[in-house]
Computed example of a mutant assay.
Amino acid sequence: MIELSWSGLRVPAIAVELGCRQKTVHCWLHRFNRLGLQGLDDLGGQGRKRRITEQERSRIISLVKTVPPGRLRWEATGNCGPSTSQGRLSGRWIPRPPQRVRQGSKWAAHR
């Protein structure tokens, strides 16, 4: 864009040549004239700001990669048992309530 401008082309011709809008050409040429080569760099801070810090993000990622407490997993011996922490069971098993299905206008236990 800058090279085309230096070779004498006007903004409308540069826009046609590059397949962009004239306003885009104006913006980039003005940024280059104002800031030099640094004006051609991407400006930081564009887009939505993060809602969590980098430290919080790292903690979430590490938690996702660990086995939840009380979750069954295969041990190296091939046995299936609850995850343990220092020989004790960690976490709590919460039984699932019985499923109920609708039969006509009343609810009944699922068979």
Rank of each mutant, 00 (worst) to 15 (best):
C20D: 00
R21H: 04
R21T: 02
R21A: 01
R21C: 02
Q22G: 00
Q22I: 00
K23R: 08
T24S: 04
T24N: 01
T24A: 05
T24C: 02
T24Q: 04
T24G: 01
V25E: 01
V25Q: 02
H26M: 06
C27G: 01
C27L: 06
W28D: 10
W28G: 12
W28Q: 12
W28Y: 02
L29Y: 03
L29N: 05
L29P: 02
H30Q: 09
H30F: 07
H30P: 00
H30K: 09
H30L: 07
R31M: 02
F32W: 00
F32N: 08
F32K: 01
F32Q: 03
N33E: 07
N33P: 00
N33W: 08
R34N: 02
R34V: 02
R34S: 03
R34Y: 04
L35I: 00
L35Y: 00
L35W: 00
L35V: 01
G36N: 01
G36K: 01
L37P: 03
L37I: 10
L37W: 11
Q38N: 07
Q38D: 09
Q38H: 05
Q38C: 06
G39D: 07
G39S: 05
G39F: 12
G39T: 02
G39I: 03
L40P: 00
L40A: 05
D41V: 00
D41M: 06
D41C: 06
D42K: 07
D42L: 05
L43M: 08
L43A: 09
G44E: 15
G44C: 09
G44T: 08
G45I: 04
G45P: 04
G47D: 06
G47T: 08
G47C: 04
G47P: 05
R48A: 14
R48D: 06
R48G: 15
K49Y: 11
R50V: 10
R50Q: 10
R50F: 08
R50E: 05
R51M: 12
R51Q: 14
R51D: 15
I52V: 13
I52E: 14
I52T: 15
I52Q: 15
T53Y: 11
E54I: 13
E54V: 15
E54Q: 13
E54N: 14
E54T: 15
Q55G: 14
Q55K: 11
Q55P: 06
E56M: 09
E56R: 14
E56C: 07
E56W: 09
E56A: 09
R57A: 12
R57C: 05
R57H: 10
R57I: 06
S58L: 15
S58A: 15
R59D: 11
R59I: 13
R59T: 14
R59Q: 12
I60Y: 11
I60D: 10
I60Q: 12
I61G: 11
I61Y: 15
I61E: 12
I61F: 13
S62M: 11
S62H: 13
L63P: 05
L63F: 10
V64W: 12
V64M: 14
V64P: 02
